[in-house]
Design a protein around this nucleic acid. Sequence first.
DNA 1: AATGTCATGTAACTAGTTACATGATTTA
DNA 2: TAAATCATGTAACTAGTTACATGACATT
Lengths: 185, 185
Amino acid sequence: MAEITQLGFALLGLIHQQPMSGYDLRKVFASTAMGSYSDSPGAIYPALHRLAARGLVRGAMKKSGSLRTRRVFTITPDGSAAFKSWLKGPVTRPDVMRRVDDLLLRFAFMDQALGRAGSVRFLRQFAAEIDSYISELRQFLGVHRNQMPTSGRLAVECGIQQYTSQLEWARSSIAVYQRRKRESK
Amino acid sequence: MAEITQLGFALLGLIHQQPMSGYDLRKVFASTAMGSYSDSPGAIYPALHRLAARGLVRGAMKKSGSLRTRRVFTITPDGSAAFKSWLKGPVTRPDVMRRVDDLLLRFAFMDQALGRAGSVRFLRQFAAEIDSYISELRQFLGVHRNQMPTSGRLAVECGIQQYTSQLEWARSSIAVYQRRKRESK
DNA sequence: AATGTCATGTAACTAGTTACATGATTTA
DNA sequence: TAAATCATGTAACTAGTTACATGACATT
């Protein structure tokens, strides 16, 4: 069975929060900080139908007042399980290298679906993987810095700074959860 | 005529630096900080053929010692022009929102192809666009912060920090070029 | 009456993915 | 001789893109 795409998981996550129609989902992508996903109907409707065909969501026609009938999608138990197992997946090197945005999307959904413990577990993995990738980038720079043009070197340095800022963020976010835990005692 | 993809420009940029075979290019993607591009033959060889079909690169068979004959690609004047016009393109909001990596790739090539002035022009545009996007994110957070789960809020804050670090990088990089300019006088 | 927005969808095209094929040459 | 590496390629599949179609209702 083909894998669920990032867009699929983004849809699943939003529907997990509350039932939504395709149109609602498009508006979310168009208007919130989740702008990295396409709000084009040619992407969203087929993706929703794929999720429905696997039984991860269920669509029901719903007349809302005077407007056109909408197909509102609700998550199924299977869908909820698939979503949570996606959230729980490990943070890998390729994720960190080329899909940090997707990792942050995963994290954004985490509290509600897995609770504080899940979020903290994710952040620790995230921090560890970033930390090790920063070392790799530094090493790369050390070896190649003299053969690189200035802009090439600066571009790599931008990456290092960016990951460093994300590492700090992850550590301070763990602290936020721990503070909250103490307070709730 | 269909547009050239990011992978296409990445290939064009590397070939612009020096003639290379498909195999060489794959190794670059697999071994350097340009890991965000696929090193799969099913992506690279067709992409090279597309560039060749447009006359942007030209491939020539070359026997190198004892190994299998390689097809070494060289950039053409048309290819060089297309590459430079890509480098000179504006830094847009969608670029900043979902393709910062691609922007940094563009920048990494910039020194050699456009010189210091081009790099600085790029950095100024980059900084301006990032700055305005940070404002947008802060505003979004201000409006929605109370309706968001902790992890959602933190995820947006991670984005803000990341862009802030990139903004600082851009400004200090401009300074690097200016210092160098003074020194060379 | 014309235009705009709500809402869902499809068709044609494109580029990327995985997996395999090919064959030469080098190393164990 | 078997396995690994060099080097290029193709086939089948997938999901995304742009652009269009459809029709109900709302606004001007």
